[in-house]
Amino acid sequence: MRLFGCAAFLSTALALAGLPSSVLAASYDFVPAPQTDLNRIYRIDRVTGEVSSCQYGLQEGTIGVTLCFSPGEGAGAQQPGEYGLVASRHEREGGVFRVNYRTGDMSICYVFDERVVCTPQARPSSAASTMAPSASTPGVSPGTGASPQRP
Protein backbone atom coordinates (compact mmCIF):
# COMPACT_ATOMS: atom_id res chain seq x y z
CA MET A 1 0.00 0.00 0.00
CA ARG A 2 2.79 2.37 0.79
CA LEU A 3 4.25 2.06 -2.74
CA PHE A 4 0.85 2.88 -4.22
CA GLY A 5 0.68 5.99 -2.05
CA CYS A 6 4.14 7.09 -3.27
CA ALA A 7 3.16 6.59 -6.91
CA ALA A 8 -0.09 8.52 -6.42
CA PHE A 9 1.82 11.31 -4.67
CA LEU A 10 4.39 11.48 -7.48
CA SER A 11 1.66 11.52 -10.14
CA THR A 12 -0.13 14.34 -8.30
CA ALA A 13 3.13 16.27 -7.91
CA LEU A 14 3.86 15.95 -11.66
CA ALA A 15 0.35 17.14 -12.52
CA LEU A 16 0.71 20.15 -10.23
CA ALA A 17 4.07 20.91 -11.84
CA GLY A 18 2.39 20.88 -15.26
CA LEU A 19 4.13 17.68 -16.38
CA PRO A 20 2.18 14.82 -17.98
CA SER A 21 1.88 11.59 -16.00
CA SER A 22 3.47 9.86 -19.02
CA VAL A 23 6.79 11.04 -17.56
CA LEU A 24 6.45 7.99 -15.31
CA ALA A 25 6.23 5.66 -18.32
CA ALA A 26 9.27 4.15 -19.99
CA SER A 27 10.66 6.35 -22.74
CA TYR A 28 12.33 3.61 -24.81
CA ASP A 29 11.30 0.38 -26.50
CA PHE A 30 13.71 -2.36 -27.57
CA VAL A 31 13.33 -4.86 -30.43
CA PRO A 32 15.77 -7.49 -31.70
CA ALA A 33 16.70 -7.63 -35.37
CA PRO A 34 14.83 -10.52 -37.02
CA GLN A 35 18.03 -11.95 -38.56
CA THR A 36 18.49 -15.27 -36.74
CA ASP A 37 22.30 -15.18 -36.70
CA LEU A 38 22.63 -11.53 -35.60
CA ASN A 39 22.62 -10.51 -31.95
CA ARG A 40 21.55 -6.91 -32.57
CA ILE A 41 18.97 -4.97 -30.54
CA TYR A 42 17.39 -1.71 -31.72
CA ARG A 43 16.26 1.02 -29.32
CA ILE A 44 13.71 3.74 -30.07
CA ASP A 45 12.75 6.84 -28.16
CA ARG A 46 8.96 6.47 -28.05
CA VAL A 47 8.33 10.24 -28.28
CA THR A 48 11.01 11.45 -30.73
CA GLY A 49 11.46 8.32 -32.87
CA GLU A 50 15.26 8.44 -32.55
CA VAL A 51 16.72 4.99 -33.27
CA SER A 52 20.03 3.49 -32.15
CA SER A 53 21.35 -0.06 -31.90
CA CYS A 54 23.79 -2.26 -29.97
CA GLN A 55 25.17 -5.75 -30.40
CA TYR A 56 27.71 -8.07 -28.83
CA GLY A 57 31.19 -8.15 -30.32
CA LEU A 58 34.17 -10.40 -29.78
CA GLN A 59 37.38 -8.85 -28.51
CA GLU A 60 40.44 -11.01 -27.97
CA GLY A 61 41.53 -11.34 -24.37
CA THR A 62 38.17 -10.16 -22.97
CA ILE A 63 34.69 -11.51 -22.40
CA GLY A 64 33.58 -9.33 -25.31
CA VAL A 65 32.32 -5.80 -25.86
CA THR A 66 29.04 -4.04 -26.47
CA LEU A 67 29.18 -2.37 -29.88
CA CYS A 68 26.71 0.48 -30.20
CA PHE A 69 25.65 2.40 -33.29
CA SER A 70 24.39 5.95 -32.87
CA PRO A 71 21.69 7.55 -35.02
CA GLY A 72 22.80 8.52 -38.52
CA GLU A 73 20.90 9.79 -41.56
CA GLY A 74 17.14 9.67 -40.96
CA ALA A 75 17.46 7.92 -37.58
CA GLY A 76 17.59 11.08 -35.47
CA ALA A 77 14.70 12.74 -33.68
CA GLN A 78 11.51 13.16 -35.74
CA GLN A 79 8.38 15.21 -35.09
CA PRO A 80 7.03 14.30 -31.63
CA GLY A 81 4.69 11.34 -31.89
CA GLU A 82 4.07 7.84 -30.58
CA TYR A 83 6.83 5.73 -32.11
CA GLY A 84 7.63 2.05 -31.94
CA LEU A 85 9.72 -0.61 -33.65
CA VAL A 86 8.37 -3.65 -35.48
CA ALA A 87 10.55 -6.52 -36.62
CA SER A 88 9.55 -8.42 -39.74
CA ARG A 89 9.49 -12.21 -39.75
CA HIS A 90 12.15 -12.35 -42.47
CA GLU A 91 14.91 -14.46 -40.94
CA ARG A 92 17.71 -12.71 -42.89
CA GLU A 93 16.53 -9.13 -42.24
CA GLY A 94 18.96 -7.09 -40.14
CA GLY A 95 16.75 -4.00 -39.94
CA VAL A 96 13.45 -3.07 -38.33
CA PHE A 97 10.47 -0.87 -39.17
CA ARG A 98 10.06 2.43 -37.29
CA VAL A 99 6.33 3.16 -37.02
CA ASN A 100 4.44 6.22 -35.85
CA TYR A 101 1.26 4.88 -34.28
CA ARG A 102 -0.45 8.30 -34.48
CA THR A 103 0.12 9.02 -38.19
CA GLY A 104 0.69 5.57 -39.70
CA ASP A 105 4.07 6.64 -41.12
CA MET A 106 6.74 3.95 -41.46
CA SER A 107 10.40 3.76 -42.36
CA ILE A 108 13.04 1.04 -42.39
CA CYS A 109 16.05 1.36 -40.09
CA TYR A 110 19.27 -0.64 -40.27
CA VAL A 111 22.99 -0.36 -39.48
CA PHE A 112 25.05 1.08 -42.34
CA ASP A 113 28.68 2.29 -42.08
CA GLU A 114 28.74 2.07 -38.26
CA ARG A 115 25.54 4.18 -37.85
CA VAL A 116 21.83 3.47 -37.73
CA VAL A 117 20.14 4.95 -40.79
CA CYS A 118 16.43 5.09 -41.65
CA THR A 119 14.66 5.57 -44.94
CA PRO A 120 12.34 8.59 -45.24
CA GLN A 121 9.00 8.07 -43.51
CA ALA A 122 6.10 7.10 -45.76
CA ARG A 123 2.49 5.96 -45.49
CA PRO A 124 1.34 2.79 -47.23
CA SER A 125 -1.53 4.73 -48.83
CA SER A 126 0.85 7.36 -50.21
CA ALA A 127 1.65 7.18 -53.93
CA ALA A 128 5.21 8.24 -53.13
CA SER A 129 5.80 5.07 -51.10
CA THR A 130 5.59 2.90 -54.23
CA MET A 131 8.24 4.86 -56.11
CA ALA A 132 11.83 3.71 -56.48
CA PRO A 133 14.27 4.80 -53.75
CA SER A 134 16.17 8.03 -54.29
CA ALA A 135 19.90 8.19 -54.87
CA SER A 136 20.32 9.62 -51.36
CA THR A 137 19.03 6.44 -49.66
CA PRO A 138 22.17 4.77 -48.23
CA GLY A 139 23.01 1.38 -49.71
CA VAL A 140 20.19 1.38 -52.28
CA SER A 141 20.56 1.96 -55.99
CA PRO A 142 17.61 3.82 -57.55
CA GLY A 143 15.45 1.77 -59.87
CA THR A 144 17.26 -1.52 -59.24
CA GLY A 145 14.97 -2.84 -56.53
CA ALA A 146 18.11 -3.69 -54.55
CA SER A 147 17.83 -4.24 -50.83
CA PRO A 148 19.90 -2.15 -48.42
CA GLN A 149 23.32 -3.64 -47.84
CA ARG A 150 24.01 -4.79 -44.31
CA PRO A 151 27.35 -5.59 -42.70
Results as ranks from 00 to 15, higher is better:
109 C>L: 05
115 R>K: 15
103 T>H: 07
95 G>A: 05
117 V>T: 11
122 A>M: 14
104 G>E: 10
128 A>K: 11
108 I>W: 02
136 S>L: 08
133 P>V: 14
134 S>H: 13
124 P>Y: 13
134 S>G: 15
105 D>I: 09
94 G>N: 05
98 R>V: 01
94 G>H: 05
96 V>I: 04
135 A>C: 07
125 S>G: 09
117 V>S: 09
115 R>W: 08
125 S>C: 11
94 G>C: 00
116 V>Y: 08
102 R>E: 03
105 D>L: 06
118 C>T: 08
102 R>D: 03
94 G>W: 03
121 Q>F: 11
106 M>F: 09
107 S>L: 04
115 R>E: 13
119 T>K: 12
136 S>C: 02
122 A>L: 15
104 G>Y: 07
105 D>P: 01
115 R>A: 08
111 V>A: 08
111 V>M: 05
133 P>F: 14
113 D>E: 06
125 S>I: 12
114 E>T: 07
124 P>D: 12
108 I>F: 07
123 R>L: 15
124 P>S: 11
123 R>N: 13
128 A>F: 10
132 A>E: 14
119 T>H: 10
105 D>H: 06
127 A>V: 15
124 P>V: 15
128 A>S: 14
123 R>I: 14
97 F>Y: 03
137 T>Y: 08
100 N>R: 03
111 V>F: 08
94 G>V: 02
112 F>P: 01
94 G>A: 09
120 P>I: 15
114 E>K: 12
101 Y>C: 02
133 P>A: 12
127 A>P: 12
132 A>I: 12
107 S>Y: 00
104 G>N: 04
119 T>Y: 09
95 G>H: 01
104 G>A: 08
108 I>L: 05
116 V>H: 07
116 V>K: 06
112 F>M: 07
113 D>K: 01
110 Y>V: 04
132 A>T: 12
132 A>G: 06
137 T>D: 03
114 E>V: 07
103 T>V: 05
129 S>E: 05
94 G>E: 11
121 Q>H: 13
126 S>C: 14
102 R>V: 02
135 A>D: 09
119 T>P: 10
111 V>R: 06
100 N>E: 00
103 T>Y: 10
97 F>H: 02
118 C>K: 00
119 T>A: 10
113 D>F: 04
98 R>P: 01
117 V>P: 01
134 S>E: 13
125 S>Y: 13
126 S>F: 13
100 N>H: 02
128 A>W: 08
132 A>V: 10
126 S>R: 07
124 P>F: 12
102 R>L: 05
100 N>W: 05
136 S>A: 13
132 A>S: 11
105 D>M: 09
94 G>L: 04
